[in-house]
């Protein structure tokens, strides 16, 4: 039997807005994934270390503080350094449209803006992790 998807849901930096992160963490768990929620106020190093320790398939970072242009690229950089090339990095929160292309260049595959549906997020994580594991997307 294949291993369930393991996702680290992270809050980095000083941002305390954790409503979205917690709702998403719960929805992923309810969808059968193993979810590790970091709690707020993590450094990029702590987030990546958690993902490494937990052997995560995906890291979902929630940011509503405006620090996304620093924190996403930094986490991506640390993930590359640790050779975590097969781990999915995605995110959500208050992130202006204009900043998204630059975040994509820094390895953030997808950003979910406010108002995104939980179902879309769950489907996306399943599909994107499946893709990385070389599986066909589940029906």
């Amino acid at each position: 039997m294949k291993r369930p998807i393991r996702v680290v849901v992270a809050k980095a930096g000083l941002d305390g807005h954790d409503r979205g992160a917690k709702v998403v963490a719960r929805a992923l768990r309810d969808a059968g994934m193993e979810v590790i929620y970091t709690g707020v106020h993590q450094t990029p190093e702590q987030v990546v270390e958690t993902a490494l320790q937990e052997d995560a398939d995906a890291v979902g970072l929630s940011l509503l503080s405006g620090a996304h242009n620093y924190l996403f690229p930094r986490i991506n950089e640390l993930m590359r350094e640790k050779g975590m090339d097969d781990v999915l990095l995605f995110g959500g929160g208050i992130i202006p449209e204009d900043d998204i292309p630059r975040l994509r260049e820094h390895g953030v595959e997808r950003i979910f803006p406010p108002g995104s549906s939980l179902e879309d997020i769950v489907d996306y994580v399943r599909e994107a992790v499946g893709r990385r594991r070389g599986e066909a997307a589940p029906a």
Binding site: G13, D15, R74
Partner: peptide, 22 residues
Amino acid sequence: DMPALMGRDPDDPLSRGEVGRE
């Protein structure tokens, strides 16, 4: 801003990217 709210100065490593943002 978040650094002030969390009691950190702008030169604190955890303040990176957050100074004057929120």
